[in-house]
Design a protein around this nucleic acid. Sequence first.
RNA 1: GGUCCUGUGGAGCAGUUGGAGUGCUCGCCGCCCUGUCAAGGCGGAGGUCGCGGGUUCAAGUCCCGUCAGGACCGCCA
Length: 600
Amino acid sequence: MIRTHDAGSLRASDAGTTVTLAGWVARRRDHGGVIFVDLRDGSGIAQVVFREEDAHALRNEFCVKVTGEVTRRPAGNENPDLATGEIEVTASALEVLSEAAPLPIPIDDNVDAGDDIRLKYRYLDLRRSGPANALKLRSRANQIAREVLHGHGFHEIETPTLTRSTPEGARDFLVPVRLQPGTWYALPQSPQLFKQLLMVAGLERYYQIARCYRDEDFRADRQPEFTQLDIEMSFVTQDDVIALGEELVAKLWGELAGHQVQLPIPRITWTDAMNRYGSDKPDLRYGVELNELTDYLRGTEFRVFAGAIDAGGYVGAVVMPGGAAQSRKELDGWQDWAKARGARGLAYVVLDESTGEPRGPVAKNLSADHLTGLADQVGAKPGDAIFFAASAHRREAQELLGAARIEIAKRTGLIDADAWAFCWVVDAPMFERTDDGGWTAVHHPFTSPNSEWLDRFEEAPDRALAYAYDIVVNGNEIGGGSVRIHRGDVQSRVFDLLGIAPDEAQDKFGFLLEAFKYGPPPHAGIALGWDRTCMLLSGNDSIREVIAFPKTRGGFDPLTSAPTPITAQQRLEAGVDAKPKAPAPAAGSAGVAAPVEKSN
RNA sequence: GGUCCUGUGGAGCAGUUGGAGUGCUCGCCGCCCUGUCAAGGCGGAGGUCGCGGGUUCAAGUCCCGUCAGGACCGCCA
C-alpha cells in the first residue's frame, strides 16, 4: 500500500504516530511560513501542516503522498466540524503523485454546477462528498438487499440483456445482429419472462439487481437504462411476497434513512386509493381527500356536472384549506394548471371567510339546496376553496382531483418533508377498456385474477380484481408485483378476453407457454425500482444522483458523447439495412399489454 | 409531440422602460503573509452575452427560428 492510514480515520488517539497518507489537495491555506492543506481521500479529510517551501507549489486536486507525524492541534485550534478536527499531520515528506490542471468545475460541497457540465466531468463531480455518498449509499442498499434475500434462501441469477423484442409495452432498444443480418435483439424492459422460466426450472427463489431498458421520454425519475431489484418466488401467496417486501423496506429505511418503518405497512385497495386520493400511488403524508358528489349533485341543472352524472360518470371535489384568500388571478391560474393537464378547467367555489357564503362562477349555477349543504358534504370551512372535477370517465375526473390534491398540499405547505408514509396498493383491477372497446391488462397478461374472480372474471372484466400490489412511499411507486397465472386454462381465458388469438399468443409468448406445459409451480414476484428507491433513501430528487454515469434528458451522455453515428463499414457489418429472410411477425395488435413488471 | 424555465469569462449568479466602459462572488496567475480551516491582503489575466436571422439610430435586453440543459403534460400498460 502506498498509504499507511486513511486520512479520515485519524483521531487524537493516533497522536505520536508517524503516518503516510495519499489523496488529493482539497484546499490549501498558504500563510507563507506555514501552509495548511486539507488532504482528502475516500475516507474523509485530514489537515496537513507544511513548514517547508515545497508545499507552496501545490494546487487544488493535486494527487499527493504525505508522510508526517500525527499531532494534537494546539489548544484552541481544534475544528469541531471535522471528524479529524482534534489532530493534524505535520508533514516531513511530500511527493506529488500527479498534478491537476485548473478545474472546469469547483470541487466544493457548497457549489452545484449545471447538470450537463457536472455529467461531462462526472469523475470530478463525484469527488464531492454529496454525490459520492449517494453512490456509496446505493452500494450499501445493494448489500442490504442481498443480505435479506440470501437470508431467505434466494439465488442471485443473471438473465440475458440481448433477448427478443417484447411486443407492445414501452419502445424497445434494438441491437442489430451481424451473424443473422436483418434480425435484431431487443434489450429487456425487465427480466419478467426469464424469471418466470426460472420458477418453472425449479429454482424457487430468484432475485437479480437487473438492468432494464425502455426507449421512452426521460424525466427526473426516468432514465433509458435503469435498475430493478427483481424478485420471484414459487409456492407463495401475495401475503408472502408482501411480507418479504416489507422486510426489505424496513431494513433499507432503518439503516439508510434512520427511519423505523411501522410493520405491517397499511394496505389500501386500488379502488379506495382512487376514490380517496385520486391516484394509484397516493401520498399519505397529508389529508385533503377527495369527496364524491355524484349522488349529492344528481338533478343539478349545471350542465357540466349534469352531463357527467347522466353519462354515468363522476363529480367530485377537493378542498383547499384557506383557498378563499386567493386572488382572482390565482384562481384563474388553476384553470391554466388544469388545462395544461388536458382538462377543460377546474370549477371552484370559495367560501366567504366570515360568512361562509359560497361564491364564484360555479356557485351561480348551483341550486340553493345544493349550495347550502355543500360545505358539510365536502368538509369545507369558511375561508376554504372547493375545486370540482366532473367527467363521464370516473378515473379521469378523479385523477385531475388527485393532481389538484398534490398541488394544494404543495402550495399550502401541508407536506412534511421528513415524513415517510408507506402503503401497499392492493386489489388492482385486472383489465381496463382500450380505446377501441376491447380490454387490456392493467398489470400484464400473466397476472392472476384473485380467488374471488378466478372462475368468473369474464362476467365483469371491468370489476375483476387481480393479485397485484404496488408499494408506495410519499406518492412514489417504488415497487410492484403480482401473483402469476400458472394454469394453462386460466391463461387461455385471459388471452381470450384480451382478444389474443391462440396463434398470436404462440407467436408472442410461445416459449413461455411451452414452458408452462411442464408443471409450472404457483409463483409470484415483485420488482423494486432501485434507482428511485435509492434516490429517496439518499434524499435526492433525481435518480441521476444515484447513477454513476447518467444520461441527460435527451438520452445523451455528455462524458462519452454517446450516442454516436456509426461508420458506413459498421453499418454494413451490423446488417442494419439487411432484409430479414422471414417476414417480421405482425407488430403488436389488439392492445396487448407488455409482459413486463411495473416497477417505476 | 406540447407547455414552461434557463443559457452572460473556468464555475455560480446580477444586468432596470432597449441607451455610452457587462458587474459581483468563487476559481486561475503573480507577490506578501507562521495557526488557518469556504484563511487574509495587494495586483493581474480571462467574455463570439449559446447559435442564426429580424426590428431599431442603438439589442445581453424586444421578435422569429434553432441548439443545449432542466421541470411538467403526453408517453412510460
